[in-house]
Amino acid sequence: MQVIFRCDPLLQDILPRPLPAQQALPDWVRAMRPKAFSALHGRDIRTVKQCPPFIDAMTLGFVIVLPCDVRVERGVFSWDWALPEPGIDGHPRAPLSFHVPEQLAGSPLHAGAVALKFNSFWTIELPAGWSLLAMHPANRLDLPFRTLSGLVDADLFHDVGINFPALWTDPDFEGVLPKGTPVAQCCPVPRTQLAFSYAAIDGESAVRYEKLAADVLTTPGVYRKRFRAPRERGGQS
């Protein structure tokens, strides 16, 4: 799939580019041990580092990254970013901006967290029939914010950037959110209707169920070795 990113020509040598999500795995995943001792089991067991669905979710699609360092002190956000004047009217200058709390009124999101949005410096164009699902980077509970999920028909809406609303969830955070931090994970999804059917697990399907369930319980790596599809790394073109 061809994903086309565009930015202001005066900024293209300054802005960090969106990255394939494979290239944005956090250091804690890389540092994790593949096994850890479980007192309950009395032996080493596999950690989530060896769980393909967990890792595959984190490496799906691409990520939008923070374009500069953002300092947070006593709930105040600031940045020192010498961004040149863009050549396009209406283009953002700040890495983030804010929503008023009333925009969340009546929802479970309206619970005292600061509502902000990460501004986009790139437009995103997808092929016809595809939409873009933007969400919080998968399994990144270590980040002090939660990006809200949204679906944009990016085959049609691609002449301006998509901003990414988020909640700042760690009121005690003090320090710097560094340039390059993933702020949104984006996955192209086909705009097609789903058809549902329902059936009982019986006959041959019951036999396959019992065999596979036994294999999963007794043999490590069944899904990874027998069912996981090959992954290809995304990149520039």
Rank of each mutant, 00 (worst) to 15 (best):
1 M>Q: 05
3 V>A: 06
4 I>C: 09
5 F>G: 11
5 F>N: 05
8 D>Y: 01
9 P>C: 07
10 L>K: 04
11 L>W: 01
11 L>K: 01
11 L>M: 03
12 Q>N: 08
13 D>V: 02
14 I>E: 02
14 I>Y: 06
16 P>M: 07
17 R>T: 12
17 R>E: 13
18 P>E: 06
19 L>S: 03
20 P>N: 09
21 A>G: 03
25 L>T: 10
25 L>K: 10
28 W>S: 05
29 V>K: 03
31 A>G: 06
33 R>S: 15
34 P>A: 07
34 P>F: 04
36 A>P: 00
37 F>G: 00
39 A>T: 06
41 H>Y: 04
41 H>V: 04
43 R>E: 14
43 R>C: 09
43 R>M: 10
45 I>N: 01
47 T>H: 09
48 V>F: 13
49 K>D: 11
51 C>P: 01
52 P>Y: 01
55 I>A: 04
59 T>M: 13
61 G>I: 00
62 F>Y: 12
62 F>G: 01
64 I>R: 01
66 L>H: 05
67 P>I: 08
68 C>G: 07
69 D>I: 10
69 D>W: 12
70 V>F: 02
77 F>Y: 12
78 S>L: 04
79 W>H: 12
80 D>K: 10
81 W>G: 02
82 A>V: 03
82 A>F: 01
83 L>F: 00
84 P>D: 11
85 E>G: 03
86 P>E: 13
91 H>L: 04
91 H>T: 06
91 H>A: 11
94 A>C: 05
97 S>G: 09
98 F>S: 10
99 H>M: 12
102 E>K: 12
104 L>T: 03
104 L>D: 14
105 A>D: 11
105 A>K: 13
107 S>F: 05
107 S>G: 04
110 H>A: 15
111 A>L: 04
115 A>T: 07
115 A>P: 05
117 K>G: 02
117 K>E: 15
117 K>F: 15
122 W>P: 00
126 L>W: 07
126 L>A: 09
127 P>I: 07
133 L>S: 08
134 A>M: 07
136 H>D: 10
138 A>P: 00
139 N>W: 09
142 D>G: 10
143 L>D: 03
144 P>V: 11
145 F>M: 09
150 G>P: 01
152 V>I: 07
156 L>C: 05
158 H>S: 11
159 D>E: 14
159 D>C: 03
162 I>H: 00
165 P>S: 05
166 A>W: 01
167 L>F: 01
170 D>V: 10
173 F>H: 09
177 L>I: 15
178 P>G: 08
178 P>T: 06
181 T>F: 00
181 T>G: 03
187 C>M: 14
188 P>F: 15
188 P>T: 14
190 P>D: 13
195 A>C: 04
195 A>G: 05
196 F>W: 11
196 F>T: 14
196 F>L: 11
198 Y>N: 05
199 A>D: 13
200 A>D: 15
202 D>V: 11
202 D>C: 08
203 G>C: 09
206 A>D: 12
207 V>L: 08
208 R>K: 10
209 Y>H: 11
211 K>W: 02
211 K>L: 07
212 L>H: 06
212 L>D: 03
215 D>V: 02
216 V>M: 15
221 G>K: 09
223 Y>L: 11
224 R>G: 02
224 R>P: 00
224 R>T: 08
227 F>H: 10
227 F>D: 05
229 A>L: 14
232 E>P: 00
233 R>C: 07
235 G>R: 14
237 S>R: 05
237 S>K: 04
237 S>P: 14
237 S>D: 10
